[in-house]
Design a protein around this nucleic acid. Structure first.
Lengths: 252, 252
DNA sequence: CTCCAGATTTGATCCGTATCAACGACCGCG
DNA sequence: CGCGGTCGTTGATACGGATCAAATCTGGAG
């Protein structure tokens, strides 16, 4: 059978040209931003958007580049415009736990403390809007609608984190993988990529570190799901051949 | 050797008299609330506190009573005043994952969706301030300082959830238990109960469901830590005999 | 004080996943 | 077109924690 590599669409950043110039004038205004409706900016009116244009700087990152790291001073916040990022924590001995994957529209870097609690790096090519922490704080300070929007996104993130917690603490490998596939698909669907074909821009090791498994177990579990006819493994992703059964496993 | 039961202090709610009357006039004003400085109310001025007095209702719960449950309509928010609560999720087959324990000052029940994503019940006797969701939403709506305070607490909670994620995904049983003890002690310390004696008002099964372990493994691990001289198991809690080594395990 | 029910501990064994070790597929590069 | 490197898969074995079973402890009721 002929298998075509799963091409990630524009949201996953695979068609993006890379530019590393810092401080370049933004080629695109917030008003025209593709992810505006998904991000915190959705709460802003025309005037505020124009103000925001001056606060944010477009920055690009190449695959595997670090955007910010655990322990660093929190000097910026980031609005992900294009691409996928991994958010993770490292233990002193090198064990890694990925706490989440960020998609376009996600707002990153908020921290209570002065330092970042997690690290974030680019899975593929990534484009972000960078805001200085202090000027963003000033901008948001007295805008209740924007504060409420941030609230809403934080609550959603917290809820996701709690789901992840259940997955890590109480599910078997097969359920973890199924749950991951369904969750990932649903997030992509909200960005407009809704098919049974699910691109997986991250590698197996990333999936393993997200699910609290080893790369071998993830690989074996994919293989088993394919053998059992639930999915088909394609280069660059998977196809949900039997969505019903995958969802059953994920809910379980 | 004579072992005295670890008495949980006032914050853990063991000295609280229980009353179940609903709608009783609040015997205490927000201005005099013991947990005000810890909770979202810290952001309010005198006038606002007086307004809040009329919005919240003091309610008590007996040990094991449910405050709200996963899937229920979100009609109220809760400010925990006294006692300890477990926050958890259930899988269809009954597996349980405790996502956190709530302590006085914690604000509970916020949800993006119309329904609660988690269940919450009282570990011991519990006292809360209950707010109607809609009236609280109206109260907070245009108060940027309060919204910022809520954001701050949400970010802190998110960060805790991420730490929990690492614990569940990448730590061994011994590290999990040590980590739990240190984390619990630190939270109690912030409430003013700072000694090496750590009261554990929740049972072993709760600890197990928090750490993604079974009750047997938790019990065995406690025993092992005691044998190795790191802790002493007391009725109602533990004593951190060798704080250094417990912290080393927890950091690991 | 005695009894009972639930909580905790301890022991024996099993199982799911980790670990260790090859092997194979793909890709950019010389 | 072959080479080396990275990534993914597969197999054999080891081990941490789960499961099953039973003993012991604890606290409350009478």
């Amino acid at each position: 059978m002929h298998k075509v590599r799963l091409e990630a669409g524009i949201v996953l950043g695979c068609r993006m040209k890379i530019s590393l110039a810092e401080g370049e004038p933004n080629e695109q205004a917030c008003a025209d931003c593709a992810v505006r409706s998904l991000s915190i900016c959705a709460a802003l009116d025309r005037t505020e958007l124009r103000e925001l244009d001056h606060l944010g700087r477009h920055v690009h990152f190449r695959p595997r580049e670090t955007v910010f790291a655990q322990g660093e001073l929190t000097e910026s916040f980031y609005n992900l415009r294009e691409g996928v990022m991994r958010l993770y924590k490292l233990l002193p001995d090198g064990r890694r736990q990925i706490v989440g994957f960020a998609l376009p529209g996600d707002f990153l870097g908020m921290a209570t403390s002065a330092r970042h609690g997690i690290s974030a790096d680019a899975v593929g090519p990534v484009a972000v809007c960078r805001f200085s922490r202090s000027s963003f704080a000033r901008f948001i300070e007295d805008k209740p609608h924007l504060l409420r929007r941030v609230n809403e996104l934080l609550v959603r993130e917290l809820s996701q984190a709690q789901d992840h917690t259940v997955l890590l603490g109480r599910r078997l490998a097969e359920e973890k993988v199924a749950s991951f596939l369904i969750g990932w698909r649903d997030r992509l669907a909200r960005l407009g990529e809704a098919t049974n074909r699910v691109p997986l821009p991250m590698g197996r090791q990333d999936v393993a570190d997200f699910l609290g498994l080893t790369i071998e177990t993830v690989s074996r579990t994919f293989t088993k799901l394919e053998r059992d006819g639930l999915i088909e493994i394609l280069p660059g992703g998977i196809c949900l051949t039997d969505l019903e059964r995958v969802e059953a496993l994920a809910a379980a």
